[in-house]
């Protein structure tokens, strides 16, 4: 049994310790918001927060997460109201939407560490996440928009 905390909930997982966190989340816990895109840490669709860091869950074994805190897209905010989620909705970022969980989880770490990122910061932080629909321009705008929301009391 491996104990993990996901979105504030404790789980004891009975799985191969080598199973990537991605498949534990998706197939065992039914948290399908985290996506499988490449299985090789190339695309970022599987990004979740492990103790606050934007790890690629497709290459992160459940073993590494033992006793740790995991946040997935389902637990990023209580009511789809993280500033990034609000901005994503306002700017209509997603097209197919498949990569967007990972995009938002990556952007959340950027904003937490740099509340007012420049375009260069966004290039640096977000180039690990692929969007085949090509929503990059809108992701950029939405990150700026979310950054602008923060002084108005939005919490990260």
């Amino acid at each position: 049994m491996i104990s993990i905390t996901v979105n504030g909930q404790h789980h004891d997982i009975d799985a191969d310790p080598n199973m990537p966190l991605l498949w534990v989340l998706r197939d065992i816990l039914g948290l399908t918001g985290t996506k499988f895109g490449c299985g090789a840490a190339q695309c970022g669709a599987c990004t979740v927060h492990l103790n606050g860091e934007a790890v690629r869950s497709c290459v992160t074994k459940i073993n590494r997460a033992a006793g740790q805190n995991i946040v997935t897209i389902e637990g990023l905010s209580d009511n789809n109201n993280h500033p990034l989620q609000l901005a994503w909705n306002e700017i209509s970022v997603p097209q197919c939407g498949y990569c967007q969980s990972g995009q938002i989880m990556s952007a959340a770490v950027l904003l937490r560490e740099n509340p007012n990122p420049t375009d260069q910061d966004i290039d640096d932080a977000m180039s690990g996440n692929i969007c085949r629909c090509g929503t990059y321009q809108r992701i950029r705008s939405a990150i700026h928009k979310a950054a602008a929301m923060q002084p108005e009391g939005a919490k990260l």
């Binding site: 860091e53 690629r56 074994k61 590494r64 990556s106 959340a108 950027l110 996440n129």
Partner: peptide, 16 residues
């Protein structure tokens, strides 16, 4: 690394 692209976000304690 920086922000959401810290080395250890992809590079584990051992080779994948």
């Amino acid at each position: 690394g920086i922000y959401s692209v810290r080395c250890s976000n992809c590079h584990q304690a051992e080779n994948t």
